[in-house]
Design a binder for these strands. Structure first.
Length: 272
DNA sequence: AGTACGCCCTGGCCGC
DNA sequence: TGCGGCCAGGGCGTAC
């Protein structure tokens, strides 16, 4: 369940290690990994010899810029990017589906137990458009007004927050946590939010994502950073996976419902 | 346009 | 102790 904060932590871990480095060997051993575009052999061949000029993030996607083309990586539910440097580093196992070797013998391992993740190439200039990624919630352009524009239509606010074509990078954990911090019920119709509620939600989204990054991500199932370490943000969760436990604000038991086929956690007293 | 549902996949957990 | 069955869930495809 890597969401925006987890992907951003991995990106920051990797930037000083791979930026400017040349890819000198590639092995992709899982066919599903490149299912969106190309075969494993084609993707591997296309990466060979290129330098990673920049490592960017958009929503939950990582962009490895190689020049005309860029390598797009999505970690799905259980994807990990592990940096293996020298002795005592990580070794590929049965869940390792790709290995990128850089000059100097350092390796980047792509590991993914459930194989929901993806790795493929797109032309750099049009990659974002092709992926159809919505507004970036930590960018200056994400204002209460921008959130208001996104909140048109009759869907419930939680479903909307999960729609990557509207707002990029928010997944199930941070959607529930942001709505709790804003005091808004996940079932509310997005278009029914008043200006004051939109301001609160806007602030809550930014604060919860920034706190997630500061605590190096939420390790609920098996999220790990690029060095294999878990994040600490799960200890700060106020509703996610806390159903039945007392609300930390008012003591009311946290409720769990299904919304758009996703487990949804909220406090029936604090969230209206 | 929206919603519902199935699919992909595997480890972990529950009940017997 | 062992095993079958169910569940989580991001994103996509299909049906309504």
């Amino acid at each position: 369940m890597p969401e925006l904060p987890e992907v951003e932590v991995i990106r920051r871990d990797l930037v000083p290690r791979i930026q400017g480095r040349r890819i000198c060997e590639v092995s992709i051993t899982e066919r599903r990994l490149t299912r969106r575009r190309g075969t494993p052999a084609e993707v591997a061949a296309a990466l060979l010899g290129y330098r990673v000029t920049a490592l960017r993030r958009r929503g939950k996607f990582l962009f490895f810029d190689l020049g005309q083309e860029c390598l797009i990586v999505h970690l799905g539910m259980t994807g990990q990017l592990l940096w293996a440097e020298g002795r005592g580093g990580f070794e590929p196992d049965e869940h390792t589906h790709a290995v990128l070797s850089f000059e100097g013998g350092r390796r980047l391992l792509y590991r993914d137990i459930r194989k929901f993740g993806e790795m493929f190439l797109l032309p750099t200039a049009s990659a974002e458009r092709t992926l159809g990624i919505g507004i970036e919630p930590l960018d200056p352009g994400f204002t209460p007004r921008a959130l208001h524009r996104v909140c048109q239509g009759k869907r419930c606010i939680k479903t909307l927050l999960l729609d990557q074509t509207r707002i990029a990078g928010i997944g199930n954990i941070y959607a529930d946590e942001a709505l709790f911090r804003a005091g808004i019920r996940p079932t509310r119709r997005a278009s029914s939010l008043r200006p004051e509620e939109l301001r609160r939600l806007h602030g809550a989204i930014r604060r919860v994502l920034q706190a997630g990054i500061r605590h190096r991500g939420s390790s609920i199932s098996n999220y790990r950073d690029a060095c294999g370490r878990p994040g600490r943000f799960a200890a700060q969760h106020r509703v996610y996976h806390r159903h039945g436990l007392p609300c930390l604000t008012c003591g009311t038991p946290i409720r769990r419902i299904l919304l758009g086929q996703r487990g949804t956690h909220y406090c029936p007293a604090c969230q209206r």
